[in-house]
Structure formats: structure tokens, C-alpha cells
């Protein structure tokens, strides 16, 4: 009951300047009492891995909770300096870190490009034209939304081998493109249907080709939808383990995720190298996510509300 009265108080006519009662103050604090501990729980493991990747084996076991540069008041104030880059040196000596990153960048960007390009094209056809079998085609493309493609991996390996693509980056690119298409088509047709017909017809009267209409008129208008599709697919492709493991396990075509998995399996007792490898894989994603998190989450939520 107390909360009820307090809530009213803020809006009542006698109190045009809302004064905060104790009840209101306490209820404003309560969310933070849950959210702050949860935030610590979410960030602590990342913190502990990064911090300890910068120490040598002895220090990471002896003092895991302090950063490599810290201070102490024992025996008078002094700085504690336990920085070591030995883990990173080992990782760069033993693993083709840059090659793995290069592979991941190629696979992710090429797959995203294919999803956006071919997804936009088919969505344009589905939303723009009436043709025999268009409903069936839309349903056919939607089937892949719910069924995980990895259940077909045994056959997929056969197909990929038959095409001469086993242990190659194109295999990963095409499989990820295929797995991203169903949701892309679903989202893009929804948005393309809302692009006003007058706009397109005006362009047609001016003699624009259908391709021109799609690429220079429709696609710029539905940019938010394209961003949503991008965001939906980016992380699953970058982070994927299953298909690199089953379709492209070769050292030369290893992605960061598979490279890390193999490295960690091989050097599981080498703590400094392991922590450095984990941090190396973590940092680019953390930085990019840190910069684009607002766009990223709004892209995700836009897709979710649809």
C-alpha cells in the first residue's frame, strides 16, 4: 500500500515539483541491487581471464585477483608489477593466429554478403511479383528457420566433397549463407512489402530496370532490415564451431573458433598460453561489441518485435 500512495504523490496537483519520499528512493535502488551483482557475474569471468593472461604461470596461480600492475600497503606503499607477455609469445609462436583471423574475416564477410545479396533478390521477387508457386517458394524457404541444418551434416560432407570443396573456405561460406537465408528472406520480404508501390512504379515509368529498382531504390529504403539480418547472422557465423570442425578442419582453413579449440585441446596444461589464446579470441569481439552495442542490440530487438 505504501508504494501505491508514494507513486501517486509524484503526480498529484499539490506536488507539482515531485519530491521523492523514502519509499520512492528505496524502490529506485532495488533494481540496482539485482543488476549490479548480475553485471559483476557477467563480467567477472572475462575480467579474470584477461587479467591473468598478462602474468606468468607462477603469478597467475599465486595472485589471480589483482591486475598485472597494482599496489600494496604491506611494508609501506609500493607498486606491484607482475606483467608478463610470455603467454602471448607462445601463442604467436605455436599457432597461426593471423591466418585464423584472416579465415574468420573472409568466411564471415563473404557469407554475410551472400545472405544479404541473394536474400534481397529472392525477397524482392517474392514481395513484388505474383507468379506460379510463389507461396510454395516462401514456405520452402521458411522451413529452414526451425530445423537446425547441422542435422544434415553427414550428407552435407558428401555434397561438399562431391563439389571438391571439402577443407575449403567456400564450403563454410556457402553453408553459412544457406543457414542464414531463411530468416533473411522472412525479415526482408516483410519490410519490402511496406515499400510504397508508387515509388517503384514512378521509377519504372522513368525507365529504370527491375535490378536498378531493387538495388538503388528498395535496398536503401529497407536498410534497417538489412542491418537486422546482418546482426542476426554475424555472431553465429563468427563463433560457429560445428561446421569448421566437420567441413574444414585443415590447419590452413581454420577459423579463430576452431583454431582456439584445437590450440586449447593441445596445450590444456599450459595455462599462460591458454589464457593468452582465450584473450586474443575475446578482444576483437569485445571491442567491436563495445563500439556498436547500441546498434547491435537495436538490430536484434527490431528483428524480435517483427
Amino acid at each position: 500500500m505504501a508504494v501505491q500512495v508514494d507513486a501517486k504523490q509524484g503526480y498529484s496537483a499539490e506536488n507539482l515539483v515531485p519530491t521523492k519520499s523514502w519509499g520512492q528512493r528505496i524502490s529506485a535502488i532495488i533494481p540496482h541491487l539485482i543488476l549490479i551483482p548480475y553485471s559483476l557475474l557477467a563480467l567477472f569471468p572475462l575480467f579474470i581471464i584477461i587479467v591473468n593472461s598478462l602474468k606468468d604461470r607462477r603469478d597467475l596461480f599465486r595472485t589471480p585477483y589483482i591486475p598485472p600492475l597494482w599496489f600494496s600497503f604491506e611494508d609501506g606503499f609500493h607498486f606491484v608489477y607482475i606483467f608478463s607477455s610470455s603467454g602471448y609469445q607462445q601463442v604467436f609462436e605455436r599457432a597461426n593466429v593471423l591466418l585464423y583471423f584472416g579465415n574468420s574475416i573472409v568466411v564471415t564477410s563473404a557469407a554475410l554478403f551472400l545472405i544479404l545479396l541473394t536474400g534481397s533478390m529472392i525477397s524482392f521477387a517474392l514481395s513484388e511479383y505474383s507468379f506460379w508457386g510463389s507461396r510454395f517458394l516462401a514456405l520452402y524457404m521458411a522451413l529452414g528457420i526451425m530445423i537446425p541444418i547441422r542435422l544434415g551434416t553427414v550428407s552435407l560432407i558428401g555434397i561438399v566433397r562431391f563439389l571438391g570443396l571439402y577443407n575449403s573456405l567456400p564450403a563454410l561460406i556457402l553453408v553459412y549463407a544457406a543457414s542464414g537465408l531463411p530468416i533473411a528472406v522472412f525479415v526482408l520480404t516483410e519490410y519490402m512489402r511496406q515499400v510504397p508501390m508508387e515509388l517503384k512504379d514512378a521509377a519504372r515509368v522513368d525507365g529504370a530496370s527491375e535490378y536498378r529498382i531493387l538495388f538503388t531504390l528498395v535496398m536503401p529504403v529497407i536498410r534497417p532490415a538489412l542491418a537486422t539480418v546482418l546482426v542476426f547472422n554475424m555472431l553465429p557465423i563468427w563463433n560457429g564451431l560445428w561446421f569448421p570442425l566437420t567441413l574444414a578442419p585443415n590447419e590452413k582453413v581454420r577459423t579463430v573458433t576452431l583454431g582456439l579449440s584445437a590450440f586449447a585441446g593441445q596445450y590444456k596444461t599450459d595455462w599462460t598460453a591458454l589464457l593468452a589464446a582465450l584473450t586474443l579470441a575475446m578482444i576483437p569481439v569485445l571491442i567491436l561489441y563495445g563500439i556498436f552495442s547500441r546498434q547491435f542490440i537495436s538490430g536484434l530487438t527490431r528483428g524480435a518485435v517483427k
Binding site: 529472392i122 530445423i147 542435422l151
Partner: peptide, 25 residues
């Protein structure tokens, strides 16, 4: 021919690398 160019690539990729392997499995 417009239709073929618009729907062809997506249908091809989707069929060969998703639908076919699932059914064949």
C-alpha cells in the same frame, strides 16, 4: 528471366547446402 535471376541464386544455395542434405540425411 527476371524471376530466374532474382530467385535462382538463393534457391540454389539453400537447396544444395540446406534442404538437400537434410532430406538426404
Amino acid at each position: 528471366h527476371h524471376l530466374l535471376i532474382f530467385i535462382g541464386p538463393a534457391v540454389l544455395i539453400y537447396s544444395v547446402f540446406l534442404a538437400l542434405p537434410l532430406v538426404d540425411s
